[in-house]
Design a protein around this nucleic acid. Structure first.
Lengths: 211, 211
DNA sequence: ACCTGAACACCGTTCAAGT
DNA sequence: ACCTGAACACCGTTCAAGT
């Protein structure tokens, strides 16, 4: 079957691998596998065979399994950053934009649970992979920049923006994790509703003190 | 060596296993192993051999490896609850007690990273283990009760205590996770400092609106 | 340059057998 | 009742070999 002259698309795909596309394909297959069957199902054998490729072909493109996961995480941070930037811009770069960013963060985690789990999973060494480190820092910087901007507009208290951003990041990250771990189901809420409540409370928390 | 007549403590310990202590010993060994060498190093072989016991002895006391991890997590939630209760009581069951609880939460995660990682790890099925479920709920209830108490004292806004508690839990959980994942090291802070800042902001966030 | 297939050293789990 | 030892079906990784 693999030798059939008629299997032209397959052959074409195989050719593309030889030109460097296998890396991308492996990344997508990894995300697909985690999304479908959980992180434990992500074996190099499963990824390889879902692409019709040997389980060791991966080692031409990634140092090891951890490097594959780090690449998934870096891609996730890039996608997240785009979402945050869009929310901030579309919200008018003010209070409404800030609220939209908070919602966008939690929605990203709910919409891309496989990416998110890998991004904050224990197995992926954040410090070991500079690419991952940078993408994470860039996403975080969107939040920091928005706080500085709001400080200049007199909307937000003049605490250290870095520390304020960490506090907010921790809050939305915590909500995302609780939602993904299904720890909100036995309560009166879900990730979306809790995120809506949280952005209101966070706004109060960082508002410029009127006293 | 194992047959030496002089090895009396070892024999005594072996006897205790026959009376049901192996379960406790396995739990402690699991925590010790994760603490020393990380969660990936927690193999049933490692746990067993650290107790001088076969790697399959565990199956008399736990259904499988996941059940062992769930037991570690349940114990972690019990320890955490005690810490939170103590902080709340010692702080005078008011604003100071609330702040102390927030700090105690993050400090628990920093002091017992192996427990904490398992408690919120993806592998431990929160819904599958009723014991774990209940210990988690009891720890959470300490926070809910403290909020209700503060509402009655006119210290805290009259939002749904459950939702307010989830918001706060998410925030301190997020700080704990970021600290454990070493994501605060490249910033101007650490887990303790960020927790201190966060409890101040959280207090503002949930304070009774004066308007 | 890129991929394969066999081999290696692991892993969790099962199960008949021992005491 | 409790534990062992061999066996099974996996896993990530290495490496000589193919094209």
């Amino acid at each position: 079957m693999a030798h059939a002259r008629a299997a032209r698309p397959a052959r074409k795909r195989a050719d593309r691998y030889h030109h460097g596309d296998l890396r991308r394909a492996l990344l997508q297959a990894a995300v697909r596998t985690i999304g479908a069957h959980g992180i434990d199902a992500l074996t190099l054998r499963a990824v390889g065979s879902s692409l019709g490729v040997s389980r060791t072909a991966l080692y031409r493109h990634f140092a090891d399994k951890a490097a594959l996961l780090a690449a998934v995480a870096a891609e996730g941070f890039r996608l997240l950053r785009v979402q945050l930037e869009e929310a901030w811009e579309r919200g008018g770069r003010g209070g409404a934009g800030f609220d939209a960013m908070g919602l966008a963060y939690v929605r990203f985690a709910l919409a891309h649970p496989s990416h998110y789990r890998v991004m904050f999973g224990a197995d992926v060494g954040a410090a070991e992979n500079p690419d991952l480190e940078e993408e994470g820092a860039r996403a975080f910087q969107v939040l920091v920049d928005s706080l500085v901007s709001q400080q200049q507009d007199g909307l937000v208290r003049r605490d250290d923006p870095q520390q304020m951003a960490l506090f907010i990041w921790a809050a939305v990250h915590g909500i995302a994790m609780l939602a993904l771990d299904r720890r909100l189901e036995h309560q009166h809420t879900d990730g979306e509703a809790l995120a809506r409540y949280a952005v209101g409370r966070l706004r109060t928390a960082i508002a410029l003190a009127t006293a």
